[in-house]
Structure formats: C-alpha cells, structure tokens
Design a protein around this nucleic acid. Structure first.
Length: 453
RNA sequence: UCCAGAGUAGCUCAAUGGUAGAGCACGCGGCUGUUAACCGUGUGGUUGCAGGUUCGAGUCCUGCCUCUGGAGCCA
C-alpha cells in the first residue's frame, strides 16, 4: 500500500517494503546510480530516492524527467549524506506518465505571472503546494472555530433576486437569449436574478431563529476591479449573531482572526517556514503578534482626528464624512497603532441601510478590521433591529420597501438586536501567508477578462 | 475605469537607430553520494499585434492587445 511522503518523513525508524507514488522534481545521475527527488504534494519536502543501476525499471531511468509520475518500491534507510534524514533505496521503479521537454515547470524559479498562465500545473510548485495546503487547513479551521462555539452552518443561496445593497455590481443569471431586461418575467425564475454578492440578509433570517449562524461559500462581484486584492469570485465567511451588539461583534472578529493565526502556526509550520523564507520574512512575527496582542479599537471620528493631526501628506484629504482611503487605513494599522485595528461608528451616509443608527443620529454601528499589509479584512455591523428606523433607512437610501418585505418581517416578528460581519477568505490567506496577490491564493482566479481553466 | 511601467528563445533577462545574445531548461559527451549538482558542447527567434518615420527599427512615432504596480469600488 502507498505511503504518503509526509508520513514517511515523520517515521522514527527505518522501514522495509515502502511504496511511494509521486512526481519527479529533479534527477541527478551518478556513476552506477541516480538520485530522484520525489514529491507527492502531501508536504512541502521531497523524498530522496536512490536508484541503483540494474534494479527492475531502471532501464527506463532516462525517462524519469522533471514532471514525470512514478511509483517506487524500496526500503527507507538513514541517509549517509547531510541534507535529509531518510532516503528511499529503491528496489523497483515504474514510470506511469512521462513529461517531455515541453513541461513548463522548471527546477529554477518562475515568476508568479508566468505561473498564473499555467494554473493547472502550478499546484506542482513548492509555493502553490504550500499555499493550497494552507488554504485547506484554514478552511477546516474556520468550521472548527464556529462549530466549537455552537454556530450553525447555513448554506445561503448562490442565485438570488435580492441585492445586498451597496455590496457591489452583480452578475446576471439568465437563460434568455438577447437582452434579458426586455422580458424578465419570461426568464427562468420569472424575475431578474443574480449571483450573490453576500449571504448576509439570508443569514440574518437564520440568526433570528437559530441564534448563532455562519456562512462560508463563494461570492461574486462584477466590479471592474483590477487590483491585487479583488477577484470576481471569492469565498466569504459571514457569521451572524442574534442578541449581540457591536462590541460583541468586534470581540468575535478579533477572536476569529487570532484563532486563524494560531491555527496556522500550529498546523502549517512547514509551509509557513517556506513563506517566511521565500515570500515574506515577516510572516512568523506577524502571526505571533496577532495571537498575543489585543487589537486597537478606535471610533471613526477619533481616527479622522488622528489622521488630521498626523502631519502626513496624504494624497487624498482626510475629512469627516468621507470614507477612509487605503492610504489612511494603512497609516492607522501600519504606522500609528502598528497593530490590527478596528474602526467603528461610521457616518451613516457612507454605510448601507441595514446598519443600526446610533443615539447621536449621525453614526451607525459599523466596524472595519484593518490589518497591516492588507488593509480592510473584515467589514461588519450591528444591524438595525427597530422596524420604524429600518423603514426610514430604506427610504433614505431610496430603496423600495416591498423588495425587502421578508427582511423587514424579521423586525415585525420577534425582533432582536443582532450583529455580524463578512470576511474575505482569500484576504485572510494573504495575511497569513504573505502572498501579495489574491490571484495566487485562489486555485483558479476569476478577474475581469480572465476565466481560463 | 483612471495613472504609471513592461512585453525579445520554453523560462529569467541583455542588446548607442547599424550582424539579435547570455544563464537556465532541453539534446549529446564527461565527471561525481548528489542536494535548484558540476564541466564541456549543441539545438533553440514572425523581438505582443497593426501601421508609420528612416538607407537601415528590438530600439523612434501612432493605434490596439496583454500583463504588472498604484488608485477607485470593496471582502
């Protein structure tokens, strides 16, 4: 039976009759024998295989080139040379699939731009193996975090007729040829439908029944955004808590990010060390820092004051009532506080209709969590639970109340204070791995003009 | 969408307006318990696309395409 290289490397004693399957990373020929570096994706490290001339299969050794898939039977023995603890002394080798000279992945380094053009092969590289192993571990950690706190996982719809107002442009879903707006009632669902931009509104309905819920799934934005932090399809995590206010929401957001950092440090050590060496030297310290230090919390009004008094020559002026620009957010989290920072109580004019109006009548219970290097990673709020106020908000945002009849019903029947947030899973991964472009932490990136693979 | 930069061999990059090159990859030969092995040697080009200027364009000009960085929108 096959043994994963990850498990072989963890063995504490030699082992006979081991079978490994994987892909050749490189081969080095010596007189009378060869070294194969084998990788099966179970871990970052390769297994060194020693192939003596004359063993079954060795006649085809010339075809064991970089990228070829192979099966090796052998005995695991301590390596006499430095560089690795164990090596596999092959007793039989078998070539499954060749990889000829056109195999694009070389032994030397490639640029990330080139690797994006071969997204079907890049998981075979060290970096992308590490990224996607980490992504898998963190996805599991997300569920563990919420499940251990009795949050209930809700699958909100991918296709929706509702627009989580302000979240962004939507992709149209239609089966009609031509222009679907001419006759939307003839469309598959009898009305215009879209790919979801957020599961929040549906999530609120379940929170107002099951108390604490979360969603974790794909989300779509048809924005023509061409940046390293935006994708048209990404994965979002959205918890929603009934009987919860803004401070409780901020507590959960902070706990969540700390838990993810802690999980990565504990369960992705080998891959994290790779990121620290080849991607971003600061990764380990940053994660340790996030785990240990409390986040700074600052009201929007105070943040504006800090920015105004900073004396920094910002490209965009700082003014109350304006959204904080990227440069402002970066200054707060990277230079002023030097810590993850939660900004809260934003002016109501710049935030969506569903956020709760504060007693000052000017600000709403919104909060954004900013982290060094990435900027905004979480956006959340306590929701407006008062029916009359919510209806006024809809009006103020020039939205039709009848489109939100089911949403307002939540306030009509057994309303409760509730709060939640949204977090982009890819941005979390960027923060944890140091990988600077969102296209490189998602298996197949969808961005404007690019849906290859 | 806006601003800036880039596009030359499979990959990473050179090349005063004057004969398109190197390293790696790949082929061949050699050497060696090797470690992105090493040494020698060979193959490899519609210089993103379309026009223009010029005796002559990879190089200068115009348009387009793609990519990258930054901005806006946001997660």
């Amino acid at each position: 039976m096959r043994t994963l290289i990850k498990h072989i490397r963890a063995l504490s004693a030699p082992a006979d009759a081991v079978i490994v399957q994987g892909w050749v990373r490189t081969r080095r020929d010596a007189k009378g024998f060869s070294f194969l570096e084998l990788n099966d994706g179970s871990c970052l490290a390769n297994l060194q295989v020693v192939v003596d001339a004359g063993i079954p299969g060795s006649a085809h050794l010339a075809s064991f080139t970089t990228g070829a898939s192979v099966v090796v039977n052998g005995n695991l023995v301590p390596s006499p040379a430095p560089g690795q603890k164990w090596e596999l002394r092959a007793t039989k080798i078998e070539l499954l699939g060749t990889a000829d000279a056109s195999y694009p992945l070389q032994k030397k380094g490639h640029t990330l731009e080139f690797l994006r053009t071969i997204a079907h092969l890049r998981p075979r590289s060290n970096l992308f193996g590490a990224v996607f192993r980490t992504r898998s571990k963190l996805a599991f950690a997300v569920h563990e975090f919420f499940q251990s706190r009795e949050f209930i996982y809700v699958h909100t719809p991918i296709i929706t007729a509702s627009d989580c107002e302000g979240a962004g442009e939507m992709f149209r879903v239609t089966t009609l040829k031509g222009k679907p707006d001419e006759k939307p009632e003839a469309d598959f669902f009898g009305k215009p439908t879209y790919l979801t931009v957020s599961g929040q509104l549906e999530g609120e309905t379940f929170a107002c029944a099951l108390s604490n819920i979360y969603t974790f799934g794909p989300t779509f934005r048809a924005e023509n955004s061409n940046t390293a932090r935006h994708a048209a399809e990404f994965w979002m995590i959205e918890p929603e808590m009934a009987f919860c206010d803004l401070p409780g929401d901020m507590d959960l957001a902070e706990e969540f990010i700390k838990a993810m950092a802690r999980y990565a440090l504990e369960h992705c050590a080998e891959d994290l060390a790779f990121f620290a060496k080849f991607v971003d030297k600061g990764v380990p310290e940053r994660l340790q820092f996030v785990v240990e230090r409390p986040f700074v919390r600052v009201p929007y009004t105070e943040a504006v004051g800090i920015l105004k008094q900073s004396g920094k020559p910002f490209e965009f002026p700082v003014d109350y009532g304006q959204n904080l620009q990227s440069e402002h957010e970066r200054f707060l989290t990277e230079e002023h506080f030097k810590s993850p920072t939660t900004v809260f109580n934003y002016p109501r004019e710049i935030k969506p209709f569903y956020m709760r109006l504060n007693d000052d009548g000017k600000t709403v219970t919104a909060m954004d969590v900013l982290v060094p290097g990435i900027g905004e990673v979480i956006g959340g709020a306590q929701r407006e639970e008062r029916l009359a106020q919510l209806q006024e908000n809809l009006e103020a945002h020039q939205l039709k109340p009848e489109d939100y009849w089911w949403y307002t019903d939540l306030r009509r029947y057994g309303t409760v204070p509730h709060a939640g947030f949204g977090l982009g899973f890819e941005r979390l991964l960027m923060f944890l791995t140091g990988v600077a472009n969102i296209r490189d932490v998602i298996p197949f990136a969808r961005t404007p003009g690019n849906a290859e693979f």
